[in-house]
């Protein structure tokens, strides 16, 4: 019995060791892209900072990785989240979206933040400073709704 536990432990440790050599690609493109949200729409500095701090780690091409992100299987977990986040909305490539997608994206930003679905709890548990208080939520919502409205008013063009 003790032997079995020992063997199981060794196998686990071995698997953990080997897993460290399997690392996903890092999401580390240059921070300022010409298609970034801040170059596409009117984004006041305060707002840009809020978004960068609370959203960009998963919704842009540039993640600020913490030290433990290098440890498998955590690195795999982060990789998956970032991929999903970027697929839903990538602020680094916001300027490449059709106008209609921009409107949908902005409308979704307010909705998800207001309902507390974003930022993800698993993210804010570790990044305490990424939590958005009610004032910050309101600031983001007012801005995103206003920008979406402006885009809509500007007509159907791309």
């Amino acid at each position: 019995m003790r032997k079995a536990v020992k063997i199981a432990g060794l196998i686990l440790a071995g698997a953990f060791f080997i897993a460290q050599f399997i690392q996903p690609d890092k999401n580390l493109q240059e921070q300022a892209s010409e298609h970034d949200l801040v170059s596409t729409l009117e984004v006041p500095d305060q707002l840009a900072n809020l978004l960068k701090n609370s959203c960009y780690d998963c919704h842009s091409n540039h993640t600020r990785y913490p030290w433990y992100s290098k440890i498998s299987p955590l690195s795999w977990y982060l990789y998956k989240h970032i991929e999903e986040g970027k697929e839903a909305l990538n602020f680094s490539e916001f300027g490449l979206l059709e106008k209609r997608k921009m409107i949908s994206g902005l409308s979704g930003v307010c909705e998800l933040i207001e309902s507390g679905s974003m930022p993800l709890v698993s993210f804010t548990l570790i990044h305490r400073d990424a939590r958005l208080d009610e004032d910050e939520q309101r600031i983001i919502c007012e801005w995103s709704e206003a920008e979406a409205g402006k885009l809509l008013k500007s007509g159907p063009g791309s």
């Binding site: 997608k101 409107i103 949908s104 409308s107 909705e111 979406a148 409205g149 809509l152």
Partner: peptide, 23 residues
Amino acid sequence: KIALNFDKWDDYKDTKKISKLDA
């Protein structure tokens, strides 16, 4: 209902309607 409530459709802003339709 929070995600989408067809009975509240008329209360949605146009931007939200667009977003919901695409969603």
